[in-house]
Simulated assay, not measured.
Amino acid sequence: MMKKIILHGATNCGSSNFGDFLYGVAVYNYIKENYKDIEVGFYNPSEYFIKYIGDCKISLSKSDMLIYIPGGYFGQSHKSRFIDNAIQFVRFMPVGIKAIFKSIKIGVIGIGAGPIISPFLKYPIKMIGNKAEMISTRDNESYNALKSLGLDNILELSDLILALNIHNLSDTTDQVVDICKKCEGRKLLFVHYNHSLLARDIFARQLDTFVEENPEYQLVVGSDCLLSYDDEYYIEFSKRVKKNCIQFNYDSPFELIALLERVDAVLTCKLHVGVVATMLNKPVVCFAEHPEKTKRYYRQINQPDRCVSLYDTSEEEMLSILKDKIFEKSFVPDEEIDKAKRNFDVLNELINKK
């Protein structure tokens, strides 16, 4: 039986991202709760992870297995540049390469992959994948991207977050209660442009029209990670939308879940705010900043019309989608939830493999 397992994903380099935290805490807690004799931790976790999980850093050299946890980092971002791919390599690949040279076992669960064109990513992903004892992916496109590199021992599953009891992670804070009070009975529309200036400005134009026609909606604006310029973006958004807005100041991922439980609809440009909102059966519209990976999810849950590219869609079409889908509840098929849960079967098999 293994004694130490080290986890790695989008958990380093100052990460405070909502979705990446949920991935990390899900795998970490599962191992802690089900394997009492195994020490588990992260490779260079951010201060944010340490704040909400505790002292969770362990050494690679003293570990028996490296597990790459879910995330979309086995691939390139939208129209990635040379520098983007180089940063992606530095952040995710060296720990796997070190594990290979130290003869440390490797497993990969719930990974998002592709496109994989840059040599900075193609060759190390293939190298790590060839040494991995098992790999599970979160969608068909990721499965095909890894198969195209000649990798075997891959299971096509679903997004691990779908396997969570999301209500058990909710934390209703004073901020959430105050926001609900300020809404004064109006419907709450959560607006999530995050760090994207393009999304902020497009959302402002869309919502200025939408709220004029639907005054029963109150706009609540928030991020899903810590941003130094969050207040600045919010002030400019409020000016452009010309409507009374309420700001949600992101800090705790558990608090954001509590807010999403209470909203009536969500407009986002990112993946995992939308994923959690669909788990809660909220109406969701996504104008995707990372369309390659985000559109996959909505196809997977049989609701592709909820998500279009932020870059290749006219604002007229966006407004039409917003008006059509923001009143219609979303859902996640049971089949996808069952596939998501099988990621934990893969994790168990990796841990118990001799």
Rank of each mutant, 00 (worst) to 15 (best):
L280S: 09
I235A: 10
N249F: 07
Y229I: 10
E232F: 12
C269P: 01
V191T: 11
N249A: 05
L207Y: 14
L280V: 10
T268K: 04
L219Q: 03
V285N: 00
K282T: 06
H272T: 09
V191Q: 09
V263Q: 03
L280A: 10
C183V: 14
S238F: 02
L189V: 02
Y193I: 06
F287H: 09
Y250W: 08
A199T: 12
Q218G: 04
V273D: 03
M279T: 06
A199S: 15
N194G: 07
I202E: 13
K242V: 00
G222T: 03
D230V: 02
I202F: 04
K282E: 04
Y250A: 08
L260K: 05
L207A: 13
E255L: 04
E292K: 11
D208T: 05
D224M: 08
G222L: 02
F210T: 02
R205Y: 02
H195N: 11
D230E: 13
A277L: 03
G274D: 07
R200L: 14
K239T: 11
K182E: 15
L189W: 03
E212M: 06
Y234W: 10
V284Q: 00
Y234L: 03
G222R: 04
L259Y: 09
Q303N: 07
R240G: 04
Y298Q: 05
I301H: 13
E213M: 01
K282M: 05
I235M: 09
K282D: 04
L271G: 12
S238T: 14
C183N: 08
H192P: 00
H195C: 04
E255K: 05
D230C: 01
K242L: 00
D230G: 01
K239Q: 13
K295F: 05
C286L: 06
R296E: 06
E236S: 12
L271M: 15
S223T: 15
I202M: 12
V211P: 01
P253S: 14
C245P: 11
Q247R: 15
R296V: 03
D251L: 12
K187F: 05
P291W: 05
Q300A: 14
L280W: 09
D231S: 11
Q206V: 02
I235Y: 12
N281R: 08
N214L: 01
E216M: 11
A258R: 07
N302W: 01
H290R: 07
Y217E: 12
F203R: 08
A199H: 13
L267G: 04
E261V: 10
Q300D: 15
A199V: 11
F190P: 03
A204E: 10
A265P: 05
L219C: 03
C286H: 01
L280I: 11
E232R: 10
D224C: 09
